[in-house]
Design a protein around this nucleic acid. Structure first.
Lengths: 143, 143
DNA sequence: ACATTTTGCTAAACATGTTAAGTAATTCAG
DNA sequence: CTGAATTACTTAACATGTTTAGCAAAATGT
């Protein structure tokens, strides 16, 4: 049944996200990671050495949240951090071998979950949805 | 500039939601309400007397979050609660006069913000996006 | 060079998200 | 009719979201 709030864009975005993330969360909890920790780990792995501000941008996190997440990931020894020598306000974050292993152990299953969603929805509609979402993200800025 | 994570559906959903909610949050903070408190208040106002389980469903909240939010709204005297006489596990939640006033004071501006988004995106694409999001919410269930 | 502003991050406080456990009222099986 | 599920919340614990404030390093203006 469709809830009566289904024509509210904010709630539709929320519901859709819950639907997509549910299975992914279940997968990651087996690896002892939250959804956000996983997102950060993937960004660091894909980009190589990178500073927190850029991680926050790519992973869509606010810096205060990211600060705590990086502390957790460092405790778990999945990443390492050092000060940037050129600009000592900055840090350089790198993934560790253990971090790489967690990615290797879970990436395929995670991609398969998204691929399944794409198949069930139909590739065309899935791409159309991504395009509309990106468009929405770009539009609102002016006025 | 488009972030490199823009073809990831979970992150695209997150970014789109942030874009839409930013201005609404700004509006509501003027009324001393969070986005979730506002959502609950609107559901209660629209539906009339209603129990927490249904509120959670309509507002897309988990019950533990809702429990705390209802406590806050009750402290602020924007809602009232009583036990259901037929089934004493249940509660019946109602909006108060003060709650109605907050809605009256902010509903128009809130709707205008969404209408602006709709105009900027184009009504057709906006509706197409809502349809795709609702479709995504319905699909994943089986298999 | 020096005071001011800006940048990059951290800390703190409060609210919510998420999962697991707990409680009381109701329903259900036998 | 009674003990075992089930239902409708609530509590607790930990992680993140959000805003505001703080701090140190770097850039900027004069």
């Amino acid at each position: 049944m469709m809830p009566s709030t289904d024509r509210s864009l904010p709630i539709a975005l929320l519901r859709a996200r819950e639907r997509v993330m549910g299975p992914i969360r279940a997968l990651l909890s087996g690896a002892g990671l939250t959804e956000q920790q996983w997102r950060v780990l993937r960004v660091v792995q894909e980009s190589g050495p990178i500073d927190p501000t850029q991680i926050a941008d790519k992973a869509c996190l606010l810096l205060p949240s990211l600060t705590r997440i990086l502390q957790k990931l460092e405790e778990k020894q999945l990443i390492s951090r050092e000060r940037d020598q050129q600009d000592r306000r900055r840090q350089v974050v790198q993934i560790s071998a253990a971090g790489e292993k967690i990615i290797a152990d879970n990436l395929e299953a995670s991609l398969e979950l998204m691929e399944r969603t794409r198949r069930k929805m139909g590739a065309e509609r899935y791409e159309a949805l991504l395009d509309l979402l990106n468009e929405l993200d770009q539009i609102d800025l002016a006025e």
